[in-house]
Amino acid sequence: MALIELKNINYCYSPGTAFEKHALRDVSMAVDAGESVGLIGHTGSGKSTLIRHFNGLLRPNSGQVVYQGNDLWKKPNEIRSIRFQIGLVFQYPEAQIFEDTVGKDIAYGPRNMGIGQEEMNARIRESLQCVGLDNSYLERNPFRLSGGEMRRVAIAGVLAMRPKVLILDEPAAGLDPEGRHALFDALRHYRRKSGAAVVLVSHSMEDIADFVDRVVVLDQGSVALDGPVASIFAQAEKLVSIGLDIPQSTKVLLGLKAKGYSVKTEAYTVEQAEQELLRFLKEADRP
């Protein structure tokens, strides 16, 4: 059984006004425990709207959100306790920082959960370490950190709640390559340690290919494709037709193939492409 499942979600912004916008149409998707799912789609396709349904920030006009077999909106008073299990990291999460020290800000979520001081300290240190910052940051003023450091502090604030499902909306937007690597290492580290499921919203096909097992493609508010990474990126034409892209390394291989070289095109990360090219070169050397 899926850990969390969205069933036939419909959502409309400002219904009944001139600004009415049907943002989601009959969207269904499921996330299993420990799975990592990528959510991609053109700008305005409804990704951010969709992830707000996972933890009950938006109430669907019709359809169900089922977490561990329970309908979220059957008992609206319990949604708050479910939010602690489904961590949501918004686009530009550094905007949510408000305390004067990094430690206090990370403590905000766990304190809302009612966690005791001792465990709190442990959690703060652990999540700070997880995002690759050391304990010297604890007493620092978050507003004096660099953008990338602030981002990691904000994410640590969500990790400290130890969510079973972690949802991130374009966490790497605006970070330099190094910051991006550090961020994804942190996420991998958290997954390995906690076994949490991760939903990653991203515009970067490289990040998606690198990090997730399964991809859900949204197009104008409905699910266009849903499947393993390989089967999604194999449909390059369909992706391009809905305004998306395929990873650069896949493009290189497709280009070579079009020129008549017999390379396999099922490589989505740089490492896979490298291996395939080396294999091809070795075979080509042989007479």
């Binding site: 920030l57 708050r80 918004f90 999460p93 905007a95 949510q96 979520g109």
Partner: peptide
């Protein structure tokens, strides 16, 4: 956006004593 982000971290705005409610708005 900020309200949603803090709600996602368990913020509560409409319960408790008046003092608590005011405090809930700082974040």
């Amino acid at each position: 956006r900020i309200i949603e982000a803090q709600k996602a971290r368990g913020a509560q705005f409409a319960t408790g004593t008046i003092l608590n409610r005011i405090r809930a708005f700082f974040p």
